[in-house]
Nucleic acid binder design. Structure first.
Length: 521
RNA sequence: CGCGGGGUGGAGCAGUCAGGUAGCUCGCAAGGCUCAUAACCUUGAGGUCUCAGGUUCAAAUCCUGACCCCGCAACCA
């Protein structure tokens, strides 16, 4: 069976999860589920990044022990993934001993290769913020961009990783692999950066006097490992490098690293070079998604417009008839449909409600409801067609849908994939209008009516497969109403006529329409 | 002259690479239908494609210049 290894970044635990974290995990989840129903064996890794002074400070500000604090926040993420129906296979934490060992071994091996050296490091430093800044960030004013206080130039000894040694190799690698970073603009960004800048060596240690919460630097116990260096290695720890050779061989290289566009440099430049230094294979694809803005504005703590995914699901759930599964699916749908992965999007309550009403309630939900309603009304829920022939208008539409769907899903074009699915939903709604089943019923054309309903049910069954990666609960809800085995999804079953007779059980509509006037946020 | 993205009917976007009477979703208006969640189906109104020049038989699309918005500028998750 084909393997597919997919990762999210590990999330930094200095704050609680927000909509952006949820977005990354939902994208990865959609891909993971798509691959599973395409008969891949998937390993989906996510987790939390727990080291660094910022984490310690966050803990201290809450009067908590660091250990306790990271446990709590990490658990928050875990709970969120559960809530959002994220199907990860493993949740890694950088404070786990296995990961700590991996990082240490990684650095020792680099040292053995002669890729680590100690040097004096000079930079602009803001003491109260404990942060380094580049000259361009500090600008003419000579103050910290965060707190606006004066920065000072400090000097300290640190350990460096020889990135520069691999600069030529990296340039060639980029040139030879134009598809290693997507979307294209992000690839171009990395290319442009490399072409216009000299690659400086990477400082990978921090003196304990300044940063105490981290993995001890294996070559010198006065230092800890720089958090990013520690964090990236999680992708290797997760599949057993250094401790389970067979497993590692099975899964590495990663098929997709999903990341936010803010961490492109780390994944697009540092990461491949780190791997190259130890002769580890390159990941096949780094895919950078865009940002969600809130009503057109950047989401940030200072603006106070952070969208808390827990609250969002709760609020959505309230307007969707206290149905949390629907709320989660609606959110997943919105995030994946509204904007192509890779572009920035604008999140707002009206946009969300609008999407849910027009696509999920009016088109999909209503189609399923009206179809089941007719099946119940005209045939007491038992549809036994005397012909399983596919209607002419479905034929071309379904063929196109199948190829378009696979193509766009493979290419991480989830928004397009969904638009193709909903085009077919629209074809079915039109088909009802044109066939006029109510007339068939009045004229007593029961056979024709049964065949007609069979076609709709079969179409809906196929749709349930296609929407599964995006809306797993809804896909299951549909299958339950068709009395088909739930949680058994495979794209192999997307061909026509696999069901002989339908025996349905109508429930309440999948998504109620949300009354705009009740939009309590 | 730091790098990049963008300015297309009321809103959000596609079309720009390979020029040929401007397309999609939502909203709005009228009509139809009744199996359905005031839903669904049909039709319609609404755009000098940021501006100014230029190339061309023909420009949203190519060239030049300007204006405006938004990101990013390597220890920031």
């Amino acid at each position: 069976m084909n393997k597919f290894y997919i990762t999210t970044p590990i999330y930094y635990v200095n704050a609680s999860p927000h909509i952006g974290h949820a977005y990354t995990s939902i994208i990865a989840d959609c891909m993971a589920r798509f691959k599973r129903i395409s008969d891949y064996q998937v390993f989906y890794l996510t987790g939390t990044d727990e080291h660094g002074e910022k984490v310690k400070k966050a803990a201290m500000s809450l009067n908590k022990e660091v250990n306790e604090f990271v446990d709590t926040v990490s658990e928050n993420f875990n709970r969120l993934w559960e809530r959002l129906n994220i199907s990860h296979d493993f949740f890694i934490r950088t404070t786990q001993s296995k990961h700590i060992e991996t990082v240490k071994k990684f650095i020792i091996k680099l040292e053995e290769k002669g890729d680590i050296y100690k040097d004096t490091y000079k930079a602009l430093y803001c003491v109260p913020c404990e942060a380094f800044w580049s000259e361009s960030q500090v600008a003419e004013a000579g103050v910290c961009p965060d707190c606006k206080r004066a920065v000072e130039e400090i000097e300290e000894e640190n350990y460096f990783f020889k990135l520069s040694k691999y600069a030529d190799w990296f340039k060639q690698y980029l040139k030879d692999n134009p598809d290693c970073i997507k979307p294209k603009i992000r690839y171009n960004e990395v290319r442009g950066f490399i072409d216009n800048n000299d690659l400086a060596d990477l400082c990978i240690s921090r003196p304990k006097t300044r940063v105490s919460w981290g993995i001890e630097f294996p070559l010198d116990n006065d230092y800890v490992v720089y958090v990013w260096f520690d964090a990236l290695i999680n992708y290797l720890t997760g599949v057993g490098i250094f401790d389970d050779e067979a497993r590692f061989k099975e899964w590495w290289p990663a098929d997709i690293h999903f990341i936010g566009k803010d961490i492109l440099r780390h994944h697009g430049i540092f990461w491949p070079i780190m791997l190259k230094a130890l002769d580890i294979g390159m990941p096949k694809l780094v895919f950078a998604h865009g940002w969600w803005k809130f009503e057109g504005e950047k989401i940030s703590k200072s603006r106070g417009n952070i969208v808390n995914p827990f609250d969002l699901v709760t609020a959505l759930s309230q307007v969707l008839g206290e149905n949390q599964d629907s709320a989660v699916d609606a959110l997943r749908y919105f995030l994946l449909r509204e904007v192509p992965v890779g572009m920035d999007g604008s999140f707002s309550w009206p946009a969300l409600v609008n999407r849910i009403n027009s696509d999920l309630a009016n088109d999909l939900g209503n189609l399923v409801f009206r179809t089941l309603n007719m099946a119940e009304k005209y045939f007491a829920g038992q549809i036994k067609p005397n012909s399983k022939e596919i209607p002419e208008v479905f034929k071309g539409a379904l063929e196109k849908l199948e190829s378009n769907y696979r193509e766009t899903m493979e290419a991480v074009e989830f928004s397009l994939a969904l638009s193709h699915v909903f085009k077919f939903i629209s074809v079915m709604n039109k088909f009802i209008e044109e066939t006029k089943p109510w007339t068939l019923n009045k004229e007593g054309k029961q056979e024709e009516l049964a065949n007609f309903l069979y076609s709709l049910l079969e179409g809906i069954r196929i749709v349930s497969l296609y929407i599964y990666p995006v809306m797993p609960s809804t896909a299951n809800a549909i299958r339950r109403q068709l009395k088909l085995a739930s949680d058994s999804f495979s794209l192999k079953e997307s061909s026509w006529g696999l069901v002989d007779t339908f025996s349905i059980e109508k429930k309440s509509p999948l998504f109620p329409r949300i009354d705009i006037k009740n939009n309590s946020d």
